[in-house]
Write a protein that binds this DNA or RNA. Sequence first.
DNA 1: CAAGTTTACTTCAAAATTTGAAGTAAGTTA
DNA 2: TAACTTACTTCAAATTTTGAAGTAAACTTG
Lengths: 190, 190
Amino acid sequence: MIQKLLHEGVEVETSIDGYDAANFPEITAEKQGHRHPVHTVVVTHFELARMIERVNRRFASLLRTEMTKLGVEDVGPAQAMVLLAIGDVELSVGELLDRGHYVGSNISYYLKQLADGGYIDRVASQRDKRSARIRLTERGEQLCANLRDAGGAYNRVLARDDDDLRNLEIAFQTLHRLELVWGNAARYGI
Amino acid sequence: MIQKLLHEGVEVETSIDGYDAANFPEITAEKQGHRHPVHTVVVTHFELARMIERVNRRFASLLRTEMTKLGVEDVGPAQAMVLLAIGDVELSVGELLDRGHYVGSNISYYLKQLADGGYIDRVASQRDKRSARIRLTERGEQLCANLRDAGGAYNRVLARDDDDLRNLEIAFQTLHRLELVWGNAARYGI
DNA sequence: CAAGTTTACTTCAAAATTTGAAGTAAGTTA
DNA sequence: TAACTTACTTCAAATTTTGAAGTAAACTTG
């Protein structure tokens, strides 16, 4: 029964928290013609992608707001994400590319701005002089720390109890699976 | 014990599928100083956001590839996402804005291109002539159908069994919660 | 070890996307 | 009916992303 649905999408049941299928007419419309009456919706490949796109947009604008509050003017949210991706370790540009699935020239561009703003240091590796080693400066660490501070409030709202923790874990790992599937498909075809 | 962690992040346990904490040194680095030895990582607010950003990038490039395969040249993946957001119903620009949390001028811009390409029809509403009613044309529906067709393969890979289904559901709903929390925070402050 | 290849990144220009301020025209309200 | 709000559009500017070259160091192979 479920197998028959796989061409169409992924059968799921509601509902976490305030979520209500009625908010998603475009989804509920797709459950036509199968047997479960209520509290069963079908999440397709594209539903997920659209959700991810929306959530990403929301987060970017949130981050922009936080940065404005912090008085950061010289770099934008995209660059801040790069800083967070670097974290507290020293790494090469290539490693950074892997971390965010960025395109090379894109990261290069961001790193230039971040270096100009004094948020990172770049040193040519001793072992391999082609490879630039990147690390946060005091200033970069400070910005990350401030952002993480501001983020604490969200962590508290999002993770109220064990159920939330479990769900966040599953969401994280499922997204990772999407990342792999979509990434491999891009490289080798599905 | 968990409550103490909430300032830092969300405690979770591994692992779905091929996921291995070793792939995420930036996360495992954060589990310093708490008691679980292995298979326990901390997913912060920003870990999730970065994951979402990455997955979104992957999907966009996948979509671009699919569209190239289909020979679609006149619109890009962002516009295709708008088409998918419209779906098979007729709606106003405002409703579309809500569906994707777009900015008005942005959607206007996309709709112009989609209309120029013959993918959508816009008709002024009879009841309220300010309001444009949008709907897919034959051509728009065809593109969506083709994309959905191509997407079937991903649905099959992603949803192999009941466990997958459950996880995808939870991921979807958890993302929806993120959407709400991040969105409300943006509007009212947290 | 010289010549060619690959790797690791950078640069630049062009394209795509997003934002924000200003505009228009229809509806609503006082 | 004047003022305000809503629903969108337009345009210019900013931001982000792509893609094609380019550079220089490291490998590899005859």
